[in-house]
Structure formats: C-alpha cells, structure tokens
Amino acid sequence: MSYLFETFKGWKAYCEEKDVPLYQPVLEYEVDQKGKEEGAIREGILRAYRVMREAVETGLKEDMTSRSGMINNGAKKVYNHKLSVLSPEFQKLISRALAAKEVNSCMGRVVAAPTAGASGILPGTLYTLQEIHDLPDESIVEGLLVGAGIALIIEQNASLAGAVGGCQAETGSAAAMASGAMVYCLGGSIEQVFNAVGITIQCMLGLVCDPVAGLVEIPCVVRNASAAAIANSSAQIALADVDAVIPVDECVEAMGEIGASMENKYKETALGGLAATLTGQQIAKRVLIQDIEILPDEELPE
C-alpha cells in the first residue's frame, strides 16, 4: 500500500522507515492510485517540464499582449533591462516567472502547476535553478515529483483553489512546491525540504485573490514573480538549517484556517481588493461584455 499524502510528518516517517528518497512514495502513489507505470510517470513529468521551459522561452520571445491590454510584454522588458537590482540571475528568475505566466494570460500553452493562475512559478524557479547549478533533467523531474507530493498534502489539508482559499492557495502553494523542489534538487535533507515548504507558506499566508475585472492578469502575473522570489529566499534560509519553528503541517493548517475565514469578496469574485479600486472598476467597465441580457429575478430561461 502506497503512502496517501495525508501529512508531511507521515511522508517523512514513510521515507525514513523504507529508506527511500522523497520522490519515491510519490511515484508509488501514482502507480497505485492511477495504475500507471513508473517510467510513464517520469516521462509525463519530463514532458510537463518541457512545456514549462517552452512557456518561459515563448514569453521572452513572442508578443505577449493580452486581450484586455493589461498584460503587455512585461517579461521581455525586465529580461532586457540594463540595470540589475541584485544580480543578473535574479533578474532572469523574475523575468522567467513573468514570461511563463504572461503566456498563460495570452492564451498560450502552459502547465497548470498546481493551477493556471500560478503557472509561472515552477517554470521560473526550476529553469533558473537548472541553469545556475547545471542540473540534469532527471533531477528536475524528481524535484517536480516532490513538488507534486507537497501539493497533494496542501490540497487535502487546505486548498489549491483561489475561489476556496484565496491567492495563498494558488501562488502560495506553487511557491511552496517550488521551494521544496529546489532544496531537494540541491541535495537538501527531508528536514530542510519541509522547512523550505513551511517557511514559504509562512511568507505567503493571507494573500487574497482579487483579480481586476476577474481576469487572470492583474495582480496574478506580478505575484508569480514575487512568489518565485519568495521560493528562493525560503530555500536559501532552509538550506542553512534555519528552523521554521512552526512545523510544516501546522503551517498548512493555518493556511486552511485563514482560507476558510476569508470573506468571499477576496476569493476570485472580483468584488474586493484591487478589483474594487476605482481604476480596477474602470478597467472592468472597459473590458467586460456590456451587451448582456439580464433576466428578471423570477423569470427562468427557456
């Protein structure tokens, strides 16, 4: 019987008892639950990673203007800017996360990881990590499997959907997946991987989902960049054995609790936060369909 990804504590105990790396129970889970073969699973994950890399490259090369006009080739501007705030690597990281997410906003092909709204975070972080540390694809595939295990636990104990848990559930979960995957790829211990996840969640808690005009554009695109940065800062902290203090399972629990008590206007309804600002409302008026037949309250269609 495979491990069912109920808690991080259980995942760690399973790995220690069987003396297997973190990604192994994830493979076993998929074999058991979905009847797939290990080789096919690794291949599928590698295919997904290639789509992620393509999205990064497409976003930095092709025209990325969204239908609403709110997204307009930001990633390229960041990539090509002459002044680096921190380092050229950081500049690349940020532009790559933006690029993949811009591709999503502009009807290009992405991997929803875990959701379409957070589809820039794993591509941006893992592309950059692979480049800096010259990692083989197999290592990234194992990192992504660890990321999938992280998401399975968050899905069970909190949520991955903005409509249920706010932005923390989407970009927060993606950042936690990315951070854990990165620490794993760099040879971190189970303890360090889970610390990275916990610290990332601590940094992303409370983020609301308040998309302007209800579209997956503002602030989603820039939040993919900031989440990629947080994934990196958390990985750096965790690798140095700095303790998250609050165990990762309790961090996830906090995320679920905050999501549950978040008001509906902050859950993808475009009724609060940035969506409700004066400019947000003006944009909504401009981009949303106005030619709409509103049925009276008592009348039924047909």
Partner: peptide
C-alpha cells in the same frame, strides 16, 4: 472521483488563461 493524480498537481498542460473559463 477518487484521489487526485500527480498530473493534477503538475498539470494539466493547457491553453490559458483559466482552467474553468478556457480548458473546461
């Protein structure tokens, strides 16, 4: 129905922007 797949977490591969408003 049943448990989520690893490919629900890393996937699906889709055309954006939204799984409900586009892919669905």
């Amino acid at each position: 129905a049943g448990k989520s797949s690893v490919f629900d977490m890393i996937g699906p591969v889709m055309i954006g922007p939204s799984s409900s408003h586009t892919a669905g």
